[in-house]
């Protein structure tokens, strides 16, 4: 499927900021299930973006604005060709030893409830076990926006019984790692046929299955990622994989507007 993405993030300051710095992870990964036809990341005020890679192999862009400015706009846009691989992520260049994806982080530290959730699952082969985990999380945590925030931990979200894709992913990761299964947090976009229910900006997980490699699990939707998923970055948790991490000096009264357009397109003949 050919998907066109336009992702705009606008920061506005009531009083001009003197300095801003941002690290962006807004570039799709390339692997067997995903080809990048064209892609660019731009910013306003125009400033050179330095491309790099983080420790997990994700493409990053670093930008700084060292003069007074009333806001920053970041636009990531382009066309990606996806294929359905039943969730299997093959052909990605892996730069981090598998064992690292067993590390607990503050956002994914398992508590007794998470351990219990994992232990209550019927013993089985790894793939069915992961599917059961995904189903259990969906059952326990309803998709409700506005209850949790970016700093909500897996344990807090499970206790609340409500959350968004980030929370589903964190609980999945916490339980999987606790059970000795390497797992990671994935950010991306989701194309939905019904534009009224667009959750264009999305997050899911990947777990390691011997013999298959990394396999995606979109716990929020209860499916393995399909050709509707555009994959950006993967890392230990939402903080490590954050699409945008920034700071500014001065610039009181910050406001943020995010706009994501994800559309299907027909390939040019």
């Amino acid at each position: 499927m050919r998907i066109v993405v336009e992702h705009r993030t606008r920061y506005r300051y009531e009083a001009p900021a003197a300095y801003s710095a941002q690290l962006l992870r807004l570039t799709p990964a390339v692997f067997d299930g995903q080809k990048v036809i064209d892609w660019k990341v731009d910013s306003q005020p125009a400033t050179p973006l330095r491309e790099g890679r983080d420790g997990f192999g994700n493409i990053t862009h670093f930008l700084t604005v060292n003069r007074p400015h009333e806001g920053i706009e970041i636009v990531a846009s382009g066309t990606v060709e996806t294929a359905d691989t039943a969730g299997v992520v093959a052909g990605l260049s892996e730069v981090v030893p598998l064992a690292v994806y067993l590390r607990h982080t503050p956002l994914t530290e398992p508590d007794a409830a998470i351990s219990a959730l994992a232990e209550a699952l019927p013993a089985s082969e790894r793939v069915p076990w992961l599917h059961a985990l995904m189903a259990a999380i969906r059952e326990r945590v309803a998709y409700v926006t506005g209850v949790t925030g970016t700093e909500t931990t897996a344990a807090q979200a499970l206790a609340a019984g409500q959350g968004v894709c980030q929370d589903h992913a964190h609980i999945f990761i916490a339980a999987a790692r606790q059970a000795g299964v390497p797992a990671r947090y994935v950010t991306g976009y989701l194309f939905l046929d019904d534009p009224d229910h667009a959750v264009a900006h999305h997050a899911w997980t990947e777990a390691w299955v011997a013999g298959l490699g990394w396999v995606g699990f979109d716990a929020a939707n209860g499916v393995c990622p399909t050709e509707h998923h555009v994959r950006l970055a993967a890392a230990l948790d939402a903080r490590y994989a954050a699409p945008i991490r920034g700071m500014h000096r001065g610039g009181a009264g910050e406001s943020l507007a995010v706009e994501v357009k994800v559309q299907q397109t027909t390939p040019q003949q």
């Binding site: 890679r53 420790g55 730069v95 981090v96 030893p97 064992a99 067993l102 590390r103 230990l236 490590y240």
Partner: peptide
């Protein structure tokens, strides 16, 4: 760690181990 000479978890789960430093 792969060779098993140091237990993986005392490195991987250690607060002083910085995943940010991977591949630097």
């Amino acid at each position: 760690l792969r060779a098993g000479r140091v237990p993986a978890d005392i490195v991987i789960q250690n607060a002083a181990f910085l995943p940010e430093m991977l591949n630097v």
